[in-house]
Design a protein around this nucleic acid. Structure first.
Length: 281
DNA sequence: ATGGCAGAAGCATTCTGA
């Protein structure tokens, strides 16, 4: 079972590229971020023609998330719910459509577009940290149900310096600060693992390249799009790959798809045992 | 420090992203 995540930076601008990619890769589930369109204008039909159902949670111009799935999603929820741990006021997150979740084939699929945060001294940065704290609380609720959990999307955080082309230049700044990494760690710690790092321990693997300064041509990238799975699901993981090829398209998204392959029939090795110090690499 | 580049809204230019 193939599950993918892709920040497409506008579903309408990227539609043909997304359809081409789906035909080529044949994912079972594709989670999209930054669709940038209201629900009544989302192009559902091209996906339906390929046999996919579409669940959308969008807004005008900004943000927006969607779950494209061969198996119809059940228990679809839009936005946060049940975030009690930090006394979060969920109301403040209602305006920005950044999270959609659903049950598909027995897996709790959680698709997120984490706020960028702008700069460390900005209001947007506080919003980002609060949003991540709410996400941690949200996961507490999901975990209680003992499900298979797959949390994926654009996290706008490089988990470690291995995930930045030039850590000396960017460490401590936006997407690479200790505050953000701690907040992300608080979401995943003790319950989720970064699928990509099970198979690849080295630097040099990116999911995003800035549009500016020919960053893709110089391969100056970051790994900020992630697929996290819980312990129960990690036993079924076969692979995790970043498909960088769409970044070479004409008029590409600045992000590329990340994808895992799951074997839902067999139970494999439990990768979770040595994960406690994962972020200390 | 600022802007680079891109998309949306909407028609010149601003806002936002990362």
């Amino acid at each position: 079972m193939l599950i993918a995540t892709w920040n497409v930076n506008s579903i309408r601008s990227r539609l043909s590229q997304i359809i081409d990619w789906i035909i080529q890769v044949n994912p079972d589930i594709l989670c999209l971020q930054e669709t940038k369109v209201m629900d009544d204008s989302f192009p559902v039909e091209p996906f339906a023609k390929l046999g996919y159902s579409v669940e959308i949670y969008g807004q005008k111009s900004y943000n927006g998330v969607a779950i494209i799935s061969k198996i119809k999603a059940e228990n679809v929820k839009k936005g946060f719910y049940g975030c009690t741990k930090f006394n979060q006021n969920i109301e403040i997150f209602l305006d920005q459509k950044r999270l959609i979740s659903a049950d598909i084939n027995g897996i709790k699929i959680i698709n997120v577009y984490v706020p960028n945060g702008s700069s460390l001294n900005s209001d947007k940065f506080h919003y980002k940290i609060n949003w991540l704290n709410c996400l941690a609380s949200f996961l507490d609720e999901q975990e209680k149900k003992g499900e298979l959990i797959c949390l994926m999307g654009d996290f706008n955080i490089a988990p470690s310096n291995l995930d930045i082309y030039d850590p000396n230049k960017y460490e401590g700044g936006i997407m690479a600060s200790k505050i953000e990494r701690d907040a992300l760690n608080n979401v995943v710690k003790g319950r989720l693992i970064d699928s990509f790092r099970i198979f690849e321990k080295n630097t040099g693997h990116w999911s995003w390249w800035d549009y500016r300064n020919n960053a893709y041509e110089f391969n100056k990238g970051w790994r900020i799009d992630h697929i996290y799975i819980n312990k129960k699901l990690s036993s079924k993981l076969k692979s995790c790959v970043i498909d960088s090829s769409p970044r070479g398209n004409l008029r590409p998204s600045d992000h590329v798809p990340v994808m895992i392959d799951l074997n839902l029939n067999n139970i494999n090795v439990d990768f979770f045992e040595d994960d406690d110090n994962f972020f200390e690499i």
